[in-house]
Design a protein around this nucleic acid. Structure first.
Length: 859
RNA sequence: GCCCGCUUGAUGGAAUGGUAGACAUAACGGACUUAAAAUCCGUGCGCUUCGGCGGUGCCGGUUCGAGUCCGGCAGCGGGCACCA
């Protein structure tokens, strides 16, 4: 076999370099490293058992950043761990009888092996799993510190209750109002639960967003909307014939004269009180409760109300009596759980008023419209305008009217100016086994007693059974029975565990000192590494995980754990991986491996040859079977090829379409590069050889391309434009392939070019990079080789092609010296035949010259 | 329902308000080969009377000039507090 027929041995080569990096502990991060620190973190995975393409993309992106920053001279911290508590482990226990701990640990082992095959530059010595007591014990301590700091409290809150399984259901487990496993109608139940007082940070969370300049604008917007700060009025309505009053929050106090009803939530104390004596109302409340707890379910349900028969008295318009309804669209968690409705100026109120025949009185008119002719049809008027039909407010603008009404209500003592947030406190209790136990004891005499620090961790018992419905911790024979830490009398452990967002809210800090036993992390390590310089993960975490982490960091700061308020200085949110979907004639989903593409383009089922229906590309999901197993891809093509495909076709924040053709293309490039180096290396000068005295014109051109590519790829990587970086490196590769070998200086330029390609591609194709770097005669590892520097003298081109337009339409181009004077450019443009023809001898009206880019002649 | 995005050739995408389609993928043509694979080279938005004309989801606006900015609409997707 001749040498050029040899193939790049992907498997051996990738394993070889992984072993070398491992042996040398190349990716260990040290705090005493004098270089500037850089902390790159990818969202850690839930250990479901196998990595999926989303992981491959996420971790490839992070690895490129980590390796690039390392080459640029940073001391990089790049850790990985496991978000190991969660529902799937319990579901597996119920379905397959495997213990969640065993299931989770086996999954972690399998996924670790898979991740290692990707050649990621992790400091594996910092690996953590949140389900281990060494991790969660510190979280229990944090909770107790938060409790002592007044950031934690207990209150009743609603959950989805499955009456058959005797469990609380997650929103995703409620399908059409029924439990996903039992099929039983879900009930809402009140449970006493622990809450983190995150609303205390609302203002600070909002203010902090402005400083997060390296976060995507849309994520900041989503968080801002989630926090949902509004300014308005809390006011009391007297209830006709009753002693008590109804407290209402409104952001539209200006529309009070146009009020035509009041409505309270189904869980409002008033509704519950009335329901006791009104069977009709009781059944309406029960119906509302069946809607579940998710906001989407409540908002999309048909808007319904139940007239209580009570009337509220408008504090502004004397004598106006407003019927009081219980309505399914009023949320107990927002404001006071009660509203007044002004149908003319709120669409939902208008729909409600039309449905129940309530009056619609406009009180705000558009500026240019005669109030007398103003009528409200099917659309509420929600814009700014002038007050009408509102006694003393008439003629005022909306903003003025708001202020006036607030002042009037405050003067009367029936209301006050209020800031309200949509953000609610974080309920952290879960009635589940596979989570971190909440370190609390309930004592008949002492009440709620924190577990003393000396008794931490409260570990999960492993001898549990999932045979009985309900929380295994609750019916464990002995675990929950303890002596009260305060008085010693028999007491009961809290059997709830933490929301798994608890673990993921501080793991980035734990990575700073993973071996620390006295506390979650040392202040010194946190001060050194935090904040995370670049965090990378899915857009689906834009609100909850990221917000909780910001909250937790603030709470930890308040308790002296660390000094920063913001955990993530930079954020990159990646898009999803999509794939075509396939169905057989019966409409059953098929895996891509079951489908064969015939040469005529038609699709058939492998084996049976039956026709296959092609569906559009959708997010890869098990339910639609449009998944491709990364393990198979890495096995067949190698990690570098999988990584290259992840980077090359789409910008990271967009969705990526997985195609077999795309992976083939990436594989071809990997092999092409290898062949180029392999074929050229004998003819190249030695690595240290000085540059020859002169270069032929083609060689000069290629050197220019080489150095411009260095500069541009650097910029691309800084901005995470990985697809553009790949495109430019391919362009450089094409230029090198076209370099005439007999040109003066060609071998030297070819070496310079190939070395540049290898160094630039290194963070993306780390195994191939090392292999080629060593083939090119270097003994130092590529990962220890600094990022190349572009020679500024070679970046400038001496002539540029300038576009010539007439009235904005392209009519030709002219080649001009770089930075040619405006007059020269103008003259050259006017000399273009097509331009001269259009001018027909007349002088141009105007000529716009953008140096080195364009000349636009206006006629 | 509310909030947030996205939409450019057959496909993924590129384009500080300045030559739309870089770089790839698929396809087609050619070279090499007994043949195939691999590889290499080439073509590649549509229409055209070969002068040009039209074209970045749709409608309108700003501008010397709009894929890019503004207003409206449509389609698709993400999040909505117990999936992670």
């Amino acid at each position: 076999m001749s040498r050029t027929d040899e193939r790049y041995n992907v498997r051996e080569t990738e394993a070889k370099w992984q072993a070398i990096w491992d042996e040398r502990q190349s990716f260990r991060a040290r705090e005493d490293d004098p270089r500037p620190k850089y902390y790159v973190l990818e969202m850690f995975p839930y250990p479901s058992g196998r990595i999926h393409m989303g992981h491959v993309r996420n971790y490839t992106l992070g690895d490129v950043v980590a390796r690039y920053k390392r080459a640029c001279g940073h001391a990089v911290l790049h850790p990985m761990g496991w978000d190991a508590f969660g529902l799937p482990a319990e579901n597996a226990a119920i379905q397959n009888g495997v213990h969640p701990a065993k299931w989770t640990r086996e999954n972690i082992a399998a996924m670790r092996t898979q991740l290692k095959s990707m050649g990621l530059s992790y400091d594996w010595s910092r690996e953590l799993a949140t389900c281990e007591p060494e991790y969660y014990r510190h979280e229990q301590k944090m909770f107790l510190d938060f409790l002592a700091a007044g950031l934690v409290y207990r209150k009743e809150s609603w959950v989805n209750w499955d009456p058959v399984e005797h469990t609380v259901l997650a929103n995703e487990q409620v399908i059409d109002g029924r439990g996903w496993r039992s099929g039983a109608l879900v009930e809402k139940r009140l449970l006493s639960q622990w809450f983190l007082k995150i609303t205390a940070f609302a203002e600070d969370l909002l203010a902090g967003l402005e400083g997060l300049s390296r976060w995507p604008e849309r994520v900041r917007l989503m968080q801002e909307n989630w926090i949902g700060r509004s300014e308005g009025l809390r006011l009391f309505f007297d209830l006709d014939g009753r002693e008590d009053r109804l407290e209402v929050y409104t952001t539209r106090p200006d529309t009070l004269f146009g009020a035509s009803f009041c409505a309270v939530a189904a869980n409002h104390p008033l509704a519950e009180q009335l329901a006791r004596t009104d069977p009709g109302l009781a059944s309406f409340v029960a119906e509302c409760n069946r809607l579940g707890t998710s906001e989407a379910a409540l908002e999309t349900a048909e808007k319904k109300g139940y007239a209580t028969g009570l009337h509220a008295l408008n504090p502004l318009a004397a004598g106006q009596r407003l019927p009081v309804y219980v309505a399914n669209f009023v949320l107990m968690d927002y404001g006071t759980g009660a509203i007044f409705g002004c149908p003319a100026h709120d669409q939902r109120d208008l729909d409600f008023a039309r449905k129940y025949g309530l009056p619609v009185t406009p009180v705000v008119a558009p500026k240019e419209v005669d109030p007398a002719t103003l009528t409200i049809g099917d659309e509420a008027f929600t814009e700014d305008g002038v007050l009408i039909n509102s006694g003393p407010l008439n003629g005022l603008a909306v903003a003025e009217a708001k202020a006036r009404v607030i002042d009037m209500m405050e003067a009367k003592g029936v209301g006050q100016r209020a800031v309200n947030y949509r953000l609610r406190d974080w309920g952290v209790s879960r009635q589940r086994y596979w989570g971190c136990p909440i370190p609390i004891v309930h004592c008949a005499a002492c009440g709620v007693v924190p577990v003393p620090e000396s008794e931490l961790p409260v570990t999960l018992p492993e001898d549990v059974s999932f045979d009985k419905p309900g929380n295994p911790l609750d019916h464990h024979p002995s675990w929950k029975h303890v002596a009260c830490p305060r008085c010693g009398s028999p007491a009961r452990r809290e059997t709830d565990t933490f929301d798994t967002f608890f673990e993921s809210s501080w793991y980035f800090a734990r990575f700073c000192s993973p071996g620390e036993t006295s506390r979650g992390f040392t202040r010194a390590a946190a001060d050194h590494w935090l904040p995370v310089d670049q965090y990378i993960g899915g857009i689906e975490h834009a609100v909850l995980h990221l917000l909780y982490s910001r909250v937790f960091t603030r709470a930890l700061k308040a308790c002296g754990y660390l000094g920063v308020a913001e955990p993530f200085a930079g954020l990159l949110t990646q898009g999803m991986i999509c794939h075509e979907t396939y169905k057989d004639a019966e409409g059953r989903w098929l895996f891509p491996d079951q489908v064969e593409r015939r040469s005529d383009g038609s699709l058939v089922e492998l084996g049976s040859e039956r026709p296959v229906l092609l569906g559009r590309s959708e997010k890869m999901s098990k339910s639609k079977k449009n998944v491709v197993d990364p393990a198979r891809i890495i096995d067949t093509y190698g990690a570098d090829t999988a990584r290259l495909f992840m980077l090359s076709d789409s910008p990271p924040e967009r969705d990526l379409d997985w195609t077999e053709a795309g992976i083939d293309g990436a594989f071809r490039y990997v092999n092409r590069l290898w062949r180029m180096v392999e074929a050229a290396r004998d003819a190249l000068p030695a690595p240290q050889d000085p540059a020859p005295a002169s270069f032929g014109p083609a060689a000069v051109k290629v050197r220019g391309v080489t150095h411009r590519t260095i500069a541009l790829v650097g910029e691309d990587l800084e901005r995470f434009h990985f697809n553009k970086a790949v495109a430019r490196i391919r362009e450089l590769t094409n230029s090198l392939a076209d370099l005439p070998p007999d040109e003066a200086g060609a071998p030297w330029v070819l070496r310079e070019g190939l070395e540049t390609v290898v160094r630039l591609i290194g963070p993306m194709l780390p195994h191939l990079g090392e292999e080629l770097w060593s083939l090119l005669g270097h003994s130092q590892l590529l990962i220890d080789t600094p990022w190349p520097a572009a020679d500024p003298a070679l970046l400038v081109e001496d002539s540029v092609t300038v576009a010539v337009q007439v009235n904005g339409k392209l009519r030709g181009t002219v080649d001009l010296p770089k930075d040619a004077p405006t007059a020269v450019a103008e003259a050259a443009a006017l000399a273009v035949p097509a331009v001269a023809a259009l001018l027909a001898g007349k002088p141009p009206r105007k000529v716009i010259v953008v140096p080195n880019r364009i000349v636009n002649v206006v006629v």
